[in-house]
Amino acid sequence: MLLQFDRLGWWRWVLVGITGLTVVYLLMPILFIAALSFGASQWLIFPPPAWTTRWYGELFADPRWLESAWVSFVIACVVAVLSVVIGLAAAYGLVRGTFRGREALKAFFLTPMILPVVILAVALYALFLRVGLNGTTTGFVIAHLVVALPFAVLTITSALEGFDKAIEDAAILCGASPLEAVVRVTLPGIAHGLFSAAVFSFLASWDEVVLAIFMASPTLQTLPVKIWATLRQDLTPVIAAASTLLIGLTILLMLLVAVIRRGTRS
């Protein structure tokens, strides 16, 4: 009844109405930013008086935009790799280990995810000021790794839990050493989990604003820091251009994930 669309009577039109409005709410900012990035109005007036690619030109003319994007990309890649490697080791230990305090440790690994980032940012800022890591790539990587690691641990843990240990046992009985069994059988078996962990870790780092604001220096800043700093001055359409490119990247990433998911399923 209530869970069968065609048996809901007029209720279904209420539900469809709310959902439709929500879709508009969710899409509106994305669509308007994309449209306004091509608008000629300096003040982002809609509808724009004319269309232009001027803001994209300004974006690419300013080396600081590209530079900060490159910094973001490099940091996010390093973070994704480290996060998956450390996260895989930790998840394997947590899932297959038999030591005491395993549950508590698992909870500890997830805490950076639930704690307000601003607390971590301020705390790390204090530490990095003292040890001279502020404004360094290493500092960025460490800070982003702390927020990315819980995503990797969570994703890989659930992939490992979903992977029957008997398959690993079967590989060992087939003559594979325990390490060989993990490399040849378990890792390919949880490949989708490792891939998701890498994507989530990359995104966690790539999108990270709060930590980055504290870690940044005038000479080293990530793309979110550059956007933040620009935003604080004015709402220039250059940001709309940058945002539109970021949205495009997000869509590409979503498609990539969908394609790979489909590939691993068949």
Partner: peptide
């Protein structure tokens, strides 16, 4: 266990999901 040379068939299906039938048997 990996050196005992003993064969085993498990209760659950323990084929290696990423390998083909021939690759499983060849493992």
């Amino acid at each position: 266990p990996q050196h005992r040379q003993i064969g085993m068939v498990f209760q659950r299906y323990t084929l290696f999901p990423h390998l083909t039938v021939a690759e499983n048997v060849a493992f």
